[in-house]
Design a protein around this nucleic acid. Structure first.
Length: 571
RNA sequence: CGGGGCAUAGCUCAGCCUGGUAGAGCGCACGGUUCGGGACCGUGAGGUCGGAGGUUCAAGUCCUCUUGCCCCGACCA
């Protein structure tokens, strides 16, 4: 491809609404263009990377035994009513009506359609398992789209769904898919880590997220440097609390006046004790009433863990205005002693601790030496706090690390949630109807490409991993002399013949402009044909990563570059 | 959904407080000088100032409403 006949518009200035590096670089290099909030055009350059990413995913899915199909982007409401998610999914689900006023949705995911498809096609255990995937444009009406392709509303996703007659069969496919995911991200040279994750609204028994480690990641992941335990902080458990705490003699309950101490830090400062020796009270509203959650003062409550423990559909912090009636204590001074809250639970870190300092359910008052079982009913204990860096690993005790990560893939063991709701059954060996056991496997195509940029760039632009670079090589013409042009054409033709994705920069531009553009777009290899070196029979080549210029005869440079591109394709 | 901000040329922005001829840089076109890391000089094209209504002799500027976009938070396969 020749630059002058291609469609590239690079920007010298950073578009005002770009907020992460990958988005800035993709917009500046002319890969994407924003059309509306969270909605982008993939320009030719961007589309090439997307297509390469898709090709890698296809190869690995096929290798893993998955079979490709393509489901509609628009789905009828009936399917979602049947699964129960029509009323449950909320505003993120883009609902639309056709000319007959019939309800449809723009699919954010395809469990319903695939379940219906398999339900109709498969009736016997002999036909299972199956594993079907598609690469489809999806739409989720995110409240706040941002970060370009990393969190768009319209986005391209690979999603796969597997159907089984047994847990063992599901486990097997799950492991194969997990391996396929690792291969995919390895092939893109992405520094990634699979972590245990919460299953969220999708439901199911087990789940892993594939996180690409990057500063700008929206998720925090906990990783153990020695035993490879990894988990989303929403899921991660640690054992930070003191084990077998020595039991200290229970002392007499007392009221402490603590004026103007609404936060736990205030209380600690006022009393002159570390916050780890205080008890923090969080109050939530759920569909089953008010719940009081007690955690150690220096710890953050984790709503996902709390919600999972309580088994409720909704969980939100109680509005200040409802404290008086629902809890019986003012904001900032709530505590378990004599509370009106229906249910009180406490974090494991408080188990065995005596003489708690808690809110006194009265303005400017705390209660000291409160003891569960004596001064208030013994609470239920559970894991309600987020793991923190330095906490001992739950498996091996090594201090945990916390990293930022971009969720590029998420796989679930769904179980029978959808097959039961939608009557997706088969007949087993004894002619019994059984719900199929399902797994589902998502992978964000655009997000993965963006993640690659987040992880691999410098001040001048993108540094593409070869497998997803829009072009592998740029041939830069420097100088107008006849022989320079013809030498470049020759080299270009040789690379094309060798099946290399090469762009010939044949623009009538100054060298500086061409070099800046090449760095910005991030071609992994660059060959420069300039009049000076050509006079000595040489051309120059370099990689984007180190930009070290090397001279050589044209034929030798061409064969070296071809060799290196081929080697880099199959990392 | 709460709080805040922005909307003027293809892009980045000034002008608004204090109403009176629509601006700059980049990009683009043309001419010239340049030509190995985003050159320089000259000329030029390009704008319903997001939209609607109002105040006024006069509105990019003041007021009201509205739409879009961005940020913080909450939310989130």
């Amino acid at each position: 491809m020749r630059w002058t006949r291609y469609f590239i518009n690079t920007l010298r200035e950073v578009p005002a609404d770009a907020d992460v590096i990958s988005q800035k670089l993709m917009m500046r290099s002319g890969m994407i263009r924003k059309v509306a909030a969270g909605i982008y055009t993939y320009l030719p350059l961007g589309l090439r990377s997307i297509k390469k990413m898709e090709a890698i995913v296809r190869e690995e899915m096929n290798r893993a035994g998955a079979v490709e199909l393509l489901m509609p982007a628009i789905q009828p409401a009936e399917l979602w009513i049947e699964s129960g998610r029509w009323s449950f999914y909320g505003k993120e689900l883009l609902r639309i009506k056709d000319r007959h006023e019939r309800d449809f949705i723009f699919g954010p995911t395809h469990e319903e359609v695939i379940t219906e498809t398999v339900r109709d096609a498969i009736s016997s255990y002999r036909q299972l398992p199956v594993n079907l995937y598609q690469i489809q444009t999806k739409f989720r009406d995110e409240v706040r789209p941002r970060f370009g392709l990393m969190r768009g509303r319209e986005f391209i996703m690979k999603d796969a769904y597997s159907f089984h007659t047994s847990r063992e069969s599901l486990d097997q496919t799950y492991d194969v898919m997990r391996g396929a995911y690792s291969r995919i991200f390895d092939r893109c040279s992405l520094d990634h880590v699979p972590v245990e994750a919460d299953t969220g609204n999708i439901g199911g028994s087990a789940s892993h997220e594939f996180m690409v480690l990057a500063q700008s990641g929206e998720d925090a992941v906990v990783a153990c440097p020695s035993c490879h335990y990894g988990a989303n902080v929403e899921k991660a458990t640690s054992q930070f609390f003191r084990e077998a705490q020595e039991s200290i003699a229970q002392q007499q309950l007392r009221e402490i006046t603590t004026p103007g101490t609404q936060t736990i830090d205030d209380v600690g400062r006022f009393l002159g004790v570390p916050t780890s020796e205080l008890v923090k009270t969080l109050v939530f509203r759920t569909e089953n009433g008010t719940v009081m959650v007690l955690v150690r003062g220096d710890r953050q409550g984790n709503e996902v863990k709390i919600k999972n423990f309580l088994g409720t559909q909704t969980l939100e912090l109680l509005p200040d205005s409802e404290f008086a009636t629902a809890v019986g204590g003012p904001v900032g001074y709530c505590g378990p002693v004599g509370t009106k809250a229906g249910r009180v639970v406490a974090d494991n870190s408080l188990k065995g601790m005596s003489n708690w300092t808690v809110g006194g359910n009265k303005v400017d008052t705390h209660t000291g030496n409160a003891n569960p079982g004596r001064d208030f009913p013994e609470p239920e204990y559970g894991d309600f706090t987020a793991a923190e860096a330095g906490d001992p690993c739950v498996r091996c005790g090594t201090p945990l690390e916390i990293h930022r990560g971009i969720e590029v893939g998420h796989i679930f063991k769904l179980g029978t949630k959808y097959s039961k709701a939608m009557n997706c059954v088969y007949l087993d060996e004894s002619s019994q109807r059984q719900p199929m056991i399902m797994g589902c496997y998502g992978l964000g195509i655009g997000r993965t490409v963006a993640a690659a940029i987040e992880q691999s760039h410098d001040n001048d632009g993108i540094i593409w991993p070869v497998p997803i670079a829009p072009f592998e090589v740029v041939v830069t013409v420097v100088g107008r002399e006849e022989n320079v042009g013809s030498a470049a054409e020759q080299i270009y033709a040789q690379l094309v013949d060798a099946g290399i994705d090469v762009l010939l920069d044949d623009r009538d531009e100054r060298p500086g402009v061409k070099f800046k553009d090449a760095d910005l777009i991030g071609f992994p290899f660059r060959i420069v044909i300039g009049s000076k070196s050509l006079a000595n029979g040489n051309v120059e080549w370099s990689t984007r990563r180190d930009r070290e210029k090397k001279l050589g005869e044209p034929a030798a440079v061409v064969s070296t570059v071809i060799e290196q591109v081929r080697a880099a394709r199959s990392v």
